[in-house]
Simulated scan of single mutants.
Amino acid sequence: MIYMAREDNGTFLTVAEVAEIMRVSKMTVYRLVHSGELPAVRVGRSFRVHEKAVNEYLDSSFYEAG
């Protein structure tokens, strides 16, 4: 049986979509995925990152200046 991602569970994003959200290059996203800082699943030759993982990464990356 195949389960599709439901709206309430969020969605999987491409590396290009993650890069656009984070306003970084695709290479930066690939580095985060390969280092394990940003969890991803491999689909064929490409990666997909769950939007929840992106949000958690950004939430944990806040830096208080001053």
Rank of each mutant, 00 (worst) to 15 (best):
M1F: 10
M1H: 12
M1Y: 09
I2Q: 12
I2A: 14
I2E: 15
M4G: 11
A5S: 14
R6L: 15
E7C: 09
E7V: 05
D8C: 09
D8P: 04
G10Q: 04
G10N: 08
T11W: 14
T11Q: 14
F12Q: 01
F12D: 06
L13N: 09
T14C: 06
V15K: 00
V15I: 02
V15S: 03
A16C: 03
A16I: 01
A16W: 03
E17M: 00
V18F: 03
V18Q: 03
A19E: 03
E20A: 15
V24H: 07
S25H: 11
S25A: 06
S25E: 07
K26R: 15
K26S: 07
V29G: 00
R31V: 09
R31G: 03
L32C: 05
L32S: 05
L32Q: 02
S35K: 08
S35F: 10
G36Q: 02
E37Y: 12
P39H: 03
P39D: 09
P39M: 07
A40S: 08
V41D: 10
V41P: 01
V41T: 13
V41N: 14
R42A: 08
R42K: 15
V43R: 01
V43K: 02
V43T: 13
G44E: 02
G44R: 01
G44F: 06
R45P: 08
R45S: 07
S46P: 08
S46L: 08
S46Y: 07
F47I: 04
F47M: 04
R48Y: 02
R48L: 03
V49N: 12
H50V: 03
H50D: 09
E51K: 09
K52A: 12
A53L: 01
V54P: 04
E56D: 06
E56W: 06
E56N: 05
E56P: 00
Y57S: 02
Y57A: 01
Y57L: 06
Y57E: 01
L58Y: 10
D59T: 13
D59A: 15
S60T: 07
S61Y: 12
S61I: 08
Y63S: 10
E64P: 06
G66R: 08
